[in-house]
Write a protein that binds this DNA or RNA. Structure first.
Lengths: 221, 221
DNA sequence: GTACTAATGGTACTACGTACCGCGCAACGT
DNA sequence: ACGTTGCGCGGTACGTAGTACCATTAGTAC
């Protein structure tokens, strides 16, 4: 090894990932990690709260950035805010590159790490939900609609992210835009009108649509 | 088996909940739980895989029941299957009654338990997603649409469940139906129909709705 | 009585995570 | 040059979760 241009923290991360892939997560002890990194055991717990945290290093720094972006949304720019806030998270993974894919392999393998990732994803969901809920506070069913929209955005993000992690796509930008468009279109019925109509058809036969509408309305009430 | 007014397992659960609420989760040791339950420490780990599992006792039995209900869905009955599958989970919590609310209080307080609940919720999400994905396999963007629909169903379920847990409602049945309707309507563009209409209004002024529809359609097309 | 099974209790062990103490070292001010 | 302060690191000891293994008891069949 070189004469360590890398920081202690980086050496611990590298050692941990290497050992986790070689021997497995549970089969690797913290002492083995620190031995390979050339540090003491105490140092490990100074840099990471626990053995699992070494796999998810910096999500705590990401949440406030996402919150900040969501906080700047004003009336007409909310959809853009949702897109860009989700983009912050996606870009973070893209920047990590190899590390993100290594983490993905681990989380697919180790149940404890999978649960951990679910928990952190839930924090993003909660963050989005709370912001959106402030926008929909005075609408009917505002809470539920906020939760549905937040879930749709997070789901679309995760969908594209997973495809990138599995190397199933290279057109990340296009797929992200398309997925977010679908999520926003389906889950955000732009309230305010006395009626919100979502038309899922490629036909332009307005009369047929109106007949369907009248049938649906008169049948229901 | 000693003669018992309550089973060993039930005594352990009761002791654990009591101590967790008295002293907190992390401040309670397994030894204290077993002491109050009048058993040995080993017995605890025979009944529960870990200290956290005593709070979530029987989710493992619920998943296959939900899977079975989803498996019986056939073409036209898919929406009903989704509703009833989610209902299985909701009914399970309702049957637990006080226990479910006690668990909710704990999960709101203890981060470790909150994460644990997020992880088990993710398993339900995954289960729904995989079943729905088999239905939408040959549709464009089938994967993404399956994920969005699954997320919407789970979100609607969780919304009503949380409201019941917080004792914010007594009309669980009505709210569940309404929430699921909204989730299915927004996230499932039931392909094939010439138009799907979602009306978000309490007014019964059909003519006004139709004017809105015509305006929206002629403006867009 | 003997043999088998199931549930329990006890003991010992590994490893995570924490508390606490001490060391080395660089950056100061005087 | 000399202390002082702060920071990062290493070491030791400890509590506790979770596992492995063995001993014990009670019920059951023969």
């Amino acid at each position: 090894m070189a004469r360590m241009p890398t920081s202690t923290r980086a050496r611990l991360v590298d050692a941990a990932f290497a050992l986790f892939e070689e021997r497995g997560f549970h089969e690797t002890t913290v002492e083995e990690i620190t031995a390979r990194a050339g540090t003491g055991r105490t140092t490990f717990f100074r840099h990471f709260r626990g053995k699992e945290d070494v796999v998810f290093p910096d999500h705590e720094q990401l949440l406030p950035r996402v919150a900040a972006r969501l906080g700047t949304a004003t009336g007409t720019t909310r959809e853009v805010a949702l897109r860009e806030a989700a983009r912050i998270v996606l870009d973070h993974y893209l920047d990590e590159g190899t590390t993100a894919r290594a983490r993905y392999r681990l989380t697919r393998t180790v149940p404890a790490l999978r649960d951990r990732e679910s928990a952190s994803a839930q924090r993003y969901l909660r963050l989005f939900r709370e912001h959106i809920a402030t926008w929909t506070a005075n609408e009917p069913d505002g809470e539920l609609r906020a939760e549905l929209l937040a879930a749709a955005v997070i789901t679309a993000h995760n969908h594209v992210l997973r495809r990138w992690l599995r190397e199933e796509t290279d057109a990340v930008d296009a797929e992200f835009d398309a997925a977010l468009t679908r999520a926003l279109a389906t889950a955000d019925p732009s309230a305010g009108a006395s009626a919100t109509v979502v038309v899922h058809t490629s036909s332009t036969d307005v009369d047929q649509v109106l007949r369907d509408v009248r049938d649906a309305l008169t049948r229901g009430g």
